[in-house]
């Protein structure tokens, strides 16, 4: 089968969830899990699953330096040369220098700066037809920006990503926010990958909001 003719973004091996094989173009998923449930790895795995097709990756980080993100992405098999990976480092960590593959933004609160960096990062990709967009993480951004502004920002960002036919994965730690805040944020997204630890201590995952994917919990041992 010619891979290039497949519509959507293959994610087949990432989660043990039946039906979660390909994410349609223009889909933005919230990846929600408390600390230690590996939501960052899930986001990075969802992005790296595009390597076989030559998908480009754009990662916006508010909680780790671009260098760390690049190392982590490389460790899960992602392609990290600047024509494949562009990172927007809004962590304010000072841990990375701007460069071919990195756009620096002074702080997570500089939403306009993140927006401008996004347009530049897309410009720098030699081919921006198929892009997987990662956001790490909403929870950090919400420490700097009030909810209404954050909501509106993610609304605009996901609409643009969707109109461009990208696939977005946005991490959030629901245990650090009121339940209501998480519910409100989900309305910006098309679906949700939820991670939790079961009573017996096994990690579980479910996918909600995607057609053809049942929303049952599946064991997903760490």
């Amino acid at each position: 089968m010619a891979d290039r003719d497949v519509d959507g973004y293959p994610v087949g091996d990432v989660l043990p969830v039946e039906g979660f094989e390909t994410v349609p173009e223009g889909t933005n998923l919230l990846v929600a899990g408390p600390a230690m449930t590996g939501k960052r790895s899930v986001v990075l795995d969802l992005l790296a699953a595009g390597r076989g097709r030559g998908d480009r990756t754009l990662i916006i980080t508010t909680d780790a330096s671009a260098n760390r993100i690049r190392d982590q992405f490389e460790a899960v098999g992602g392609r990290v040369s600047p024509s494949y990976l562009q990172t927007i480092d809004a962590s304010g960590s000072g841990g990375s220098a701007g460069g071919e593959g990195v756009q620096l933004v002074s702080s997570p609160s500089d939403l306009t700066g993140i927006g401008i960096a996004f347009t530049k990062a897309v410009d720098r990709m030699d081919d921006a037809d198929r892009v997987r967009l990662g956001f790490l993480s909403l929870s950090t951004l919400l420490q700097y920006v009030d909810r209404e502004r954050a909501f509106a920002f993610f609304h605009v960002l996901t609409r643009r990503a969707s109109a461009a036919g990208y696939f977005g994965a946005f991490a959030i730690d629901p245990s650090t926010h009121e339940e209501q805040l998480v519910n409100v944020m989900t309305s910006v997204f098309d679906g949700m990958v939820e991670l939790r630890e079961s009573a017996s201590g096994v990690r579980e995952v479910r996918v909600r909001g995607l057609s053809g994917v049942a929303s049952a919990w599946h064991e997903f041992p760490l």
Binding site: L111, G115, V156, R160, S162, A163, S187
Partner: peptide, 29 residues
């Protein structure tokens, strides 16, 4: 999700593909 998609925000999503419109919308926020 459907309400969200179909709701009229006054600006079509495709308009946001234009960098200036995208950045202006965020700056307005």
């Amino acid at each position: 999700a459907r309400i969200e998609r179909e709701r009229e925000f006054g600006v079509e999503p495709d308009r946001l593909l234009e960098d200036a419109a995208f950045v202006t919308a965020i700056r307005a926020i």
